[in-house]
Nucleic acid binder design. Sequence first.
DNA 1: AGATGTTGTTGATGCAGATCAATCGCCGGA
DNA 2: TCCGGCGATTGATCTGCATCAACAACATCT
Lengths: 239, 239
Amino acid sequence: MKISVLGEGMHCRSCHDCTARGFAICAALDKTELRELAQLSRHVRFESGATVFAQANIATSFFSVHAGTLRLYKLLPDSRRQIVGFALPGDFLGLPGLPHHEFSADAVGRVTLCQFPKESFATFAEKRPQLLRRMVELAGHELARAQEHMVLLGRRSAEEKIASFLISWRDRLSGIGRGGEILPLPMKRLDIADHLGLTIETVSRTFSKLERDGVIQTFASGVVLLDTPRAEALSAGVS
Amino acid sequence: MKISVLGEGMHCRSCHDCTARGFAICAALDKTELRELAQLSRHVRFESGATVFAQANIATSFFSVHAGTLRLYKLLPDSRRQIVGFALPGDFLGLPGLPHHEFSADAVGRVTLCQFPKESFATFAEKRPQLLRRMVELAGHELARAQEHMVLLGRRSAEEKIASFLISWRDRLSGIGRGGEILPLPMKRLDIADHLGLTIETVSRTFSKLERDGVIQTFASGVVLLDTPRAEALSAGVS
DNA sequence: AGATGTTGTTGATGCAGATCAATCGCCGGA
DNA sequence: TCCGGCGATTGATCTGCATCAACAACATCT
């Protein structure tokens, strides 16, 4: 049987067997509501590097990540960049109550998303306390992650930053059932640098150092944690 | 008439004429609901430096700041500290869905708070979509602030950090009707340093430089912005 | 196969901000 | 009035990471 490829603007055929279901916003919904919500949504796809939305533009949609990774970033006028996070399947993009996008988002590799028009999603959510509760919960988790990242940016050394990043990336992936021996890093060195408040050279040097020290082994598409306890100690900020 | 001083454990006498009402979570409630919620709450007071709750402890209450300033911070095992934010009147403390406090909070100067037992607040909120909507909204604003702060921590120079901090502090104060010629800074230099990812010496030097350059004038209890456009330019990351 | 572009690594050098250290102003208590 | 402690300021020096520069490893195109 031929797998049909989803194009931009195509309706989601089935939320029921969606692989991102368990962790996404829709986990809060029952079968009927799920079908209703599916009516509002479109499945959209973006190729590697494509911009999903840009900072300061008016937000007309919310998104829920279905597959792939996105980088979420803010730019300063002189083009310094801070990646405020990476979005993975199940993550919700968009903040009710803020008219503009607070950051830009683009695809790291190929990405598929559920897109909801802001207005109709808001109307749908208005009368559904469990959905709202779930949104508060997701926002809370996001906020906790953001605060942890502030500690990293403000108070950790380059080596600790890299180790923390690897550990938290591993934990996020395993949280959505993507754990494994090899830790895939779909983003480039420059993305990691702009996420951790470092330069690309320092990121590269630090990976090399961790490899020399036997903490990790690097591959084209990711790393393997050889000495997890050591990585976790660095990540925790001990020694 | 003698003003009675509220002690720990005393009930809030009147949410109706609460000075933090307009911006707090309670703005979403009508008169009846307000009275119901008041039944659940206690007004509590903390003296300067007192700890309201500590990171990793089980959260049994939510709080809404009534008056004063709190510092919210995370500690690394070796006692490095990152202040993830300052809470002002109207700010809500506590995240539904996370059992533990994600950070510690203590009073900067005298503080009064509305305290809600977590369980009863959750029950109260469960059936009130406008309240939940308001919580999503507040969480969204908080998240946007956190992301802006990541840019500051990861990508700005010391001078830009101080200028950004002053501008955003000014904007927050004016947002709750506390704007004015002189910008009060109730927190100490060490707090500012731990908020901006700097040392106390660099903070002090940078204040001195901004004063030498005629951008600000420092006082015991705050600063005056003499050259606001220049401060805003630094804050925006231009030049 | 050779040319070209993209990404990552490594080396040499510079500098912003950390660290170490001394001093000052201010307030409260003896 | 003097003393002790805390917070802030300022100076001297050090260092972790940025910057500048060269090159290596691959992939894509001709």
